[in-house]
Design a protein around this nucleic acid. Structure first.
Length: 438
DNA sequence: TCTGGGGTCCTAGGACCC
DNA sequence: TCTGGGGTCCTAGGACCC
């Protein structure tokens, strides 16, 4: 089987530009939540030396000096473009696994290298024609090698955006000799250090190592890494991602929070937000974990990272119950005298919401049904008027703890009327949950 | 002054069982 | 003095991804 990885170039920046053609040729930077860090850069911004992940305040002057267009991230917009790209890719592939908002693995029957290259180029041109987004494509027998081929395609202008790993193992090994093992997909700082300690420096060293030896000091993760590097596929292309296993809602505060009531409002907000995600996916949660964090960038201040878990019996998707659980957790994690910088709620032990849910504690069947209808009404109002248009009072009125997002594109997709809608007709695309990260 | 958010998978260790 | 062994399940935490 031949595999391919299609990866959108500078995805968030490309979306901003696709929506606003005046940005053609202009360097673009997209910021994370709270306008905190650089999470995407156009080619022009990269050329100016704006580093990925840099705190914005460190590169603000550089951006101002060169007329860089700076945008707050707009995930509704990127999700919309993502669906169009995935739809275009799916029309070419027998199997597709949407890996992230801007990447998908595809599966094809085995074919000669030259045919693979031609196929990759056709797909790339088609995606560009249909969406205005440019993708790079790497093709190989395993996903690890696809990832590598994709990076090589991005780094080589003469490749035309598509790179095929030779099907001849000896030729592949030659390429792997020029790649540091630490650069491979799945090798982070920890694993990289252990590989070096065992004398495995290049990707070729990894591919040639005995799988049993890799297993002895890197576990099954390392063993699979070595096999994938030598062309043995360990990763199955998974079309359907299955139900998710946890839901997290968290955010840094716009400023330090020292007030118990304010921290409580934030936790209630995250509980309600996570509850909305549960209902969107038709799930209920059996455990809620609330947490708070002090500012890790301020070692001069006292540090604390408390969390507290609450059992939900029966499991629920009700915003009020989850907010009450978060309030319960707050009572156990609260410590006075700290400056809180971030808080959130994580839901675990998710299961499908049954058609006949049990009555809520302390409520009869009729009252429980009324609560369910209330949640449905809340979801409907917020779908039409924007998130948080209707919300729990416990999430606060002033909400002074909220962060900022001042550079949002004018064509905000929080107003659904302003954005054209993508019509995903391929059921494989519609079934897939888009994970937002680039 | 200002430093992201949301996931998955694996491992180690303890509790418990027979 | 000697005082099993093997299995499962659960949880916390680490590593890694984008």
């Amino acid at each position: 089987m031949l595999r391919a990885l299609a990866d959108c170039n500078n995805f968030y920046a490309s979306c901003e530009r696709a929506l606003n053609p005046a940005l053609e040729g202009v360097p673009i930077v997209v910021l994370s939540n709270n306008d905190g860090c650089v999470v995407a850069r156009s080619a022009e911004a990269k050329a100016l030396g704006v580093p990925m992940g840099a705190p914005f305040f460190q590169v603000r002057r550089l951006c101002e000096a060169h007329g860089v267009h700076v945008a707050s991230s707009n995930f509704a917009l990127y999700g919309d473009f993502s669906e169009r790209v995935m739809e275009a890719l799916a029309s070419h592939a027998r199997d597709i696994e949407i890996y992230s908002v801007d990447e998908a693995f595809m599966g094809f029957p085995a074919m000669p290298d030259a045919d693979a290259l031609a196929l990759g180029r056709r797909i790339r041109e088609d995606v560009r024609a249909r969406t205005g987004i440019t993708v790079s494509i790497g093709m190989a027998p395993t996903q690890l090698l696809c990832k590598l081929a994709n990076e090589l395609a991005k780094g080589d202008r003469s490749a035309g955006g598509v790179r095929v790993m030779p099907s001849d193992p000896a030729a592949r090994l030659e390429i792997l000799r020029g790649v540091p093992a630490g650069d491979l997909w799945g090798v982070g700082p920890g694993m990289g250090a252990r590989l070096r300690a065992h004398g495995l420096v290049t990707a070729a060293d990894l591919a040639e190592a005995e799988p049993g030896r890799l297993r002895s000091f890197l576990g099954v993760v390392g063993e699979r890494l070595g096999l994938e590097a030598r062309g043995v596929a360990c990763h199955v292309l998974r079309e359907d991602q299955g139900p998710r296993k946890s839901i997290l809602s968290s955010r840094s505060f716009g400023r330090a929070v020292t007030d118990r009531a304010e921290l409580g409002e934030a936790l209630a907000h995250h509980a309600a937000h996570a509850a909305a995600k549960l209902r969107e996916d038709g799930l209920v949660a059996a455990t809620l974990v609330a947490f708070a964090r002090t500012n890790k960038h301020r070692p001069d201040l006292p540090q604390l990272r408390p969390d507290a878990a609450v059992r939900l019996d029966p499991p629920t998707d009700d915003a009020s119950r989850l907010a009450a659980a978060a309030a319960d957790a707050l009572g156990r994690l609260w410590e006075p005298g700290y400056e809180w910088k971030k808080a959130g709620v994580c839901l675990h032990e998710l299961s499908p919401a049954g058609r006949s849910q049990p009555s809520l504690p302390g409520l009869g069947p009729e009252a429980s049904e009324a609560r369910r209808r209330l949640m449905a009404a809340m979801d409907k109002v917020n779908a039409e008027l924007g998130r948080d248009a209707l919300r729990l009072a416990s999430t606060g009125i002033e909400r002074a703890w909220k962060g900022r997002s001042e550079r949002r594109t004018d064509l905000s997709t929080t107003d659904p009327g302003k954005l054209p809608t993508a019509k995903a007709v391929d059921p494989r695309v519609r079934r897939t949950r888009i994970r937002f990260h680039e």
